[in-house]
Amino acid sequence: MELTQIRLLVSDFPAVYRFYRDVLGLKPQFEAENGPYAKLSPDAGHAAIALQDREQMAGLLEQLGTDAAGHRSLVVLRVDDLDATHTELTSRGARFVRDPAPMGDRMRVAHLADPEGNLIEFQEWLALREPAKDA
C-alpha cells in the first residue's frame, strides 16, 4: 500500500482551494478553483492534500447507504490489486461501507471505516492522469 493523499471534505471549496494554493503555496495537479475536487502537492512527490466538496462525497456514499455528511477527511491508500486487498482485509474483520467499484474511468475504489468512523479509501489506478502541459 502507498499513502497517496489525505483528503479534506470541505464546504467552501473555492476558499479552501485558494488557501492551500495561494497561502501555503502548494502546487495544484490541475486548476480546479471551483471544485468539486483538487489535488495539491508541496513537491514533486506522490503524496498530496486533496480537497473534495463534502456534499458530493456525501452523495456518493449516501447512494451506498453510508452517511458521509459528518466526515471532514479521509485517508487514501493506493493498492495494486483492489479485489485482493478487499478479500484480505475482509478476512481480517474489516467491514467495507463501499465494495470495490469504478470511480470515473481512471480508478476503482472501495471504502471502509475505522473503529472511530474515519473513512479510508483504497484506490486501484487503472490509468495515470496525463501531466499538465505548459501553454
Rank of each mutant, 00 (worst) to 15 (best):
residue 2 E to A: 11
residue 3 L to E: 04
residue 3 L to M: 12
residue 3 L to T: 10
residue 4 T to G: 10
residue 4 T to V: 14
residue 6 I to D: 03
residue 7 R to D: 00
residue 8 L to R: 05
residue 8 L to S: 08
residue 13 F to I: 09
residue 14 P to N: 09
residue 14 P to K: 07
residue 16 V to C: 09
residue 17 Y to C: 05
residue 18 R to M: 02
residue 18 R to Y: 01
residue 22 D to I: 06
residue 23 V to I: 14
residue 23 V to C: 11
residue 23 V to N: 00
residue 23 V to F: 10
residue 24 L to V: 12
residue 25 G to W: 04
residue 26 L to V: 05
residue 27 K to A: 11
residue 27 K to F: 01
residue 29 Q to N: 06
residue 30 F to N: 02
residue 30 F to R: 10
residue 31 E to R: 02
residue 31 E to K: 01
residue 32 A to I: 04
residue 33 E to N: 06
residue 34 N to K: 14
residue 35 G to N: 06
residue 35 G to T: 03
residue 36 P to V: 01
residue 36 P to R: 03
residue 38 A to Q: 07
residue 40 L to W: 06
residue 42 P to C: 12
residue 44 A to Q: 14
residue 46 H to K: 14
residue 47 A to W: 00
residue 48 A to E: 06
residue 51 L to I: 09
residue 55 E to K: 15
residue 57 M to K: 07
residue 57 M to T: 11
residue 58 A to M: 03
residue 58 A to S: 13
residue 58 A to G: 06
residue 59 G to N: 13
residue 60 L to S: 08
residue 60 L to H: 12
residue 65 G to V: 11
residue 67 D to Y: 02
residue 69 A to Q: 11
residue 70 G to W: 07
residue 70 G to C: 11
residue 71 H to F: 06
residue 71 H to S: 14
residue 74 L to N: 09
residue 75 V to S: 05
residue 76 V to C: 14
residue 78 R to I: 03
residue 78 R to C: 08
residue 79 V to S: 09
residue 81 D to M: 09
residue 81 D to F: 04
residue 82 L to Q: 01
residue 82 L to N: 01
residue 82 L to P: 03
residue 84 A to C: 04
residue 84 A to Q: 09
residue 85 T to N: 07
residue 85 T to Q: 12
residue 89 L to E: 12
residue 89 L to W: 14
residue 91 S to C: 08
residue 92 R to W: 14
residue 94 A to M: 12
residue 96 F to M: 09
residue 97 V to S: 05
residue 99 D to H: 09
residue 100 P to Y: 02
residue 101 A to F: 00
residue 108 R to V: 02
residue 108 R to E: 04
residue 109 V to Y: 10
residue 110 A to G: 10
residue 115 P to E: 11
residue 119 L to H: 08
residue 121 E to K: 02
residue 121 E to S: 05
residue 123 Q to V: 15
residue 123 Q to F: 01
residue 130 E to C: 01
residue 131 P to M: 09
residue 133 K to N: 03
residue 133 K to C: 02
residue 133 K to D: 07
residue 134 D to V: 13
residue 135 A to E: 14
residue 135 A to T: 12
